[in-house]
Design a protein around this nucleic acid. Structure first.
Length: 241
DNA sequence: CCGAAGACCTGCTGGC
DNA sequence: TGCCAGCAGGTCTTCG
């Protein structure tokens, strides 16, 4: 599932519910997101880290199903269920999150243009889509939002970084912020499995411009679907150069 | 350095 | 109805 907007949605919802509660006697002091990780911090400095991969779900006071792999019970009688259909998702308890967090590049939502340009200049021969999805390069963007960001920017996913003009890089940077913020506003995209922390679907799918689309909403051309780096990529051959 | 391919899992859809 | 190929919001490792 989840890319940055989905994990961000879950984070906000869980922060509102969990901060101040106790889990096995330990007080929850913060709920955060780093890249696509959801992190619950305790008063003693330790944390629970979750990666939902494609089919993980975290639902507050959810009803357990056959895919529920773990239930966390809080001191006030409320609980959090961890669902994991394809068993790719994982969670673990760590004393310190620093080592895990420092592997990622800057957050896609807050990186500044200067840093973004500097990072791009180090990877001239990369194709832009796989690079946007590389968490060590920039953290938080996955398959859906890389397609949507590239459409918004008018750049084809197979373009090499060194061929991008100054103008295109600036547009790309702006598109990252715009697309991710709009998706967060609509609680993310529910394509198959994604549900937020209240078990609700995200509403951003109806705003998708290219991901899993047949025709371009802007010009009507047939959307091209190709494989890049083992993932599906969708783009408009007319609107994206 | 770069990315293709396969691995990790399970369920759903569409075609025959 | 039944079977099977193909596909799915992610990441890791191996290999060329």
């Amino acid at each position: 599932m989840p890319e940055l907007p989905e994990v961000e949605t879950i984070k906000k919802q869980l922060a509102a519910k969990l901060i101040g509660k106790k889990l096995q006697g330990m007080e929850i002091v913060d709920v955060r997101r780093r890249a696509k990780l959801l992190i619950i911090d305790f008063g003693d400095g330790s944390s629970l880290i979750f990666h939902l991969k494609l089919t993980g779900q975290l639902i507050f006071n959810g009803k357990p199903s056959k895919y529920t792999r773990k239930v966390f019970n809080f001191d006030d009688g409320s609980h959090l269920i961890f669902n994991n259909v394809r068993r790719f998702a994982w969670w673990k308890r760590v004393k310190n999150t620093k080592k895990i967090e420092e592997k990622f590049g800057p957050e896609a939502l807050t990186v500044d243009l200067k840093t973004f340009k500097a990072l791009l200049s180090k990877r001239p021969n990369s194709k832009i889509k796989p690079l946007l999805m590389n968490q060590q390069f920039i953290a938080g963007i996955g398959n859906i939002y890389s397609d949507e960001i590239l459409f918004e920017a008018g750049v084809q996913p197979i373009r090499l970084v060194k061929t991008l003009t100054e103008q295109e890089i600036k547009k790309l940077f702006q598109s990252i912020g715009r697309v991710l913020k709009a998706a967060i506003k609509h609680q993310g995209s529910s394509v198959q499995h994604y549900l937020d922390a209240h078990g609700q679907k995200g509403g951003y799918v109806k705003y998708h411009k290219v991901y899993h689309k047949e025709k371009c909403s802007r010009c009507g051309a047939k959307i091209t679907k190709i494989k890049i780096g083992g993932r599906s990529a969708h783009y408009c051959p007319n609107c994206q150069k």
